[in-house]
Design a protein around this nucleic acid. Structure first.
Lengths: 213, 213, 213, 213
DNA sequence: GCTTAACCGAGACGGTACGTCTAGTCTTCGA
DNA sequence: TCGAAGACTAGACGTACCGTCTCGGTTAAGC
């Protein structure tokens, strides 16, 4: 997160309003719901937040940065409650993630900032820092539990462990995003179960008959 | 594909130029490379194509529709050459898809139109028709071959077969897209091999030791 | 008048439709009433006339020429019935002219083409030929009658006679146009009587008490 | 005149630039000279004035209103220097007015806005307020002087006085405009003298022999 | 009655200007 | 020094007309 409010060096003059920050981020999410990414304008956000456009530009460099911050907060809601088995944990996080992507502000904003980031390394880094990497904890935590339960073997080489975690993260997140936003099909319990079976058992085993837990 | 040129009902009046269509789509891809999605303007595309802005608007409703058509042509390049085994076929198509996503016109355009489509059912349908569904052929063809080789069992229930194909498509396409565009990590041979091992063998088996073919 | 229909040199091929000419001019006047000069478009005129735009451009060079022809016909309605005295004749023609300028197609078109003609000598000539000079007959005829009645002395020098006729024409036409279109005041019987008194008797005499006939 | 700059009710925000107003009006007159009314575009005026198009639209509703204001300033140049007699005063103002109408920006603009005003009461009012009525001062002043000199009798009834002034104004302005712009003949000293003789002495007296002063 | 050239409708074409919108900056006043 | 208000430059938007062109099809004069 990028704190615009408190970490200023100089201390003379009128201090910035902390309320304004929250109001602006909330207004941004509201505007995303109403208008979508491309029709969202900073002037409109400022109006909704009851704030002057100048104030907004003083704190964020542009639309991209603002939206990344506004959306990042939403992703911190994801959790990994212990459901007793690796399969159940995977299913749970898949459904949580799908719920998040079902919210209009997330749907439209996430893909849009990713698209913008293709030609902007700074933005790409900001997305990784603020959104993506923060969620890898879910993979690490899930593996840890599965190893404790004996469902997965321990991994000695830390580099291989990291690579595998990244791979799993891309597969899980990618599949859910693709199903939700590109294929436009619902991510319901049935799909989550099929996906989990595929992830755990692989195509060779699960190809014909997905094993219902 | 949406044919703007030939399938009009009335036959009076000057017919539309078929060259213009091709020039516009090529100019769109060129502009995507140079400018990226958000800085691409239809006026600029028209200029690059040597065409009047009105000609462009007569055929496409807006930026979204135009870019979908321009990018869709690129996806038809994907093929599934027979590499002798299911694992090799998967690896091959993953690397092909990654190459396609490494091209700047695809990187910037694909996520952007998906983002726009979240609030526009017509656009979502156009993306599905022009891009997504057309590539499912790769999954179907790959499974067919694997079954003929005996690597996968036959599937009797056609509905289950279709659901499984959709699942695999979302997993493969989603993982590659997420790795390429969100995580911003390279999709190289090594990653493709690890991913294939996971897809075929599942997490339980491949978790510790990915089986190098 | 410019005859587009009959005076062509070659004689083979399909002849131009004479009905089209009339329909176009009528449609032009109708469009002038509905839309005014600046919002009149040739495409709209063509549609109203049930004619293709091409047909229209084949016969007139542009909006200006078309409107001049369309309006010129209206001016030929003016007549100078013998009312028994010079004053009565002047009053009569003033009121007739004012009635003509009260019609919306005349109001808007006359000034507009005059404005366009300031930078276009060919158009200026066309206006003089088609509209202005044709009406000078009214002045000449009126003077002729007045001289026969003994109200005005004969004029021996033909050049002086011509200059005086031009002067009177500018004064009468100019005053009526200015009153109608610039001052936006009605040209009614009372004003016509006052104007006639001024024209005949001059300011020195008519200044205080206009002599009601 | 319509003050866009100073008389706003609210006082917050950046005030409008007074320089911009002057630059825009000057650029408008320049563009009228170069292009004429019909080819004048607001985008071009903005460029010439070194101003953004939005600044221009913020202050004027459109081309008509802008041109009226730009031309109105020119009309304020007219004066009525005391030349010693009513006839000389009339001649002087006629020649001044003709000089004004000989300037290309006036020629092309005046008739055009009058033409546009035929279907637009607001514009008609603006023309009357900004241009026409302001010049009636010349008639009133001239009559005042002539009465002081004893050339014209005093007029007791103020309503008759006003009606007569309006009549004279329409006759003088109309005749000069018609001569200049419609008949396209020069308003030179000789014509001014003939016209003055007609105006003062009337047709009956001046018909044959215009009294050369 | 057959040619044949010029006509006709329809509508796409390359252009240009429109009037509006948004971005991001700047300038003023008041807190 | 900050914030609200709103004017500023810059430039894309999507639309409307311009005047030209390219079609398929029609129509009368002249052979």
């Amino acid at each position: 997160m990028h704190d615009h409010t408190t970490d200023r060096p100089g201390r003379t003059g009128r201090p910035r309003s902390a309320e304004a920050d929250a109001a602006i981020l909330a207004a941004t999410r509201e505007a995303l719901v109403d208008l979508g990414w491309s029709k969202l304008t900073l002037g409109d956000v400022a109006t909704r937040a009851g704030v002057a456009k100048t104030t907004l530009y003083r704190r964020w460099a542009g639309k991209n940065e603002l939206v990344v911050d506004a959306v990042a907060e939403l992703f911190d809601e994801l959790e990994l409650p212990d459901r007793g088995s690796l399969a159940a944990d995977v299913e749970g996080v898949v459904l949580q993630f799908a719920d998040l992507l079902a919210r209009p502000e997330t749907r439209t904003a996430l893909m849009a900032v990713v698209a913008e980031s293709t030609g902007d390394e700074a933005l790409r880094a900001r997305i990784r820092t603020s959104i993506v990497d923060r969620q890898k904890r879910l993979v690490l935590e899930g593996r840890q539990r599965a190893q404790e339960r004996g469902e997965l073997p321990a991994e000695d080489d830390p580099e291989t462990a990291a690579r595998t975690a990244d791979l799993i993260f891309d597969v899980v997140a990618g599949a859910v995003v693709h199903r939700s936003l590109v294929s436009s099909e619902p991510v319901d319990t049935e799909w989550a179960r099929s996906f989990t079976a595929l992830l755990l058992g692989g195509l060779a085993q699960a190809g014909g008959r997905p094993s219902h837990t």
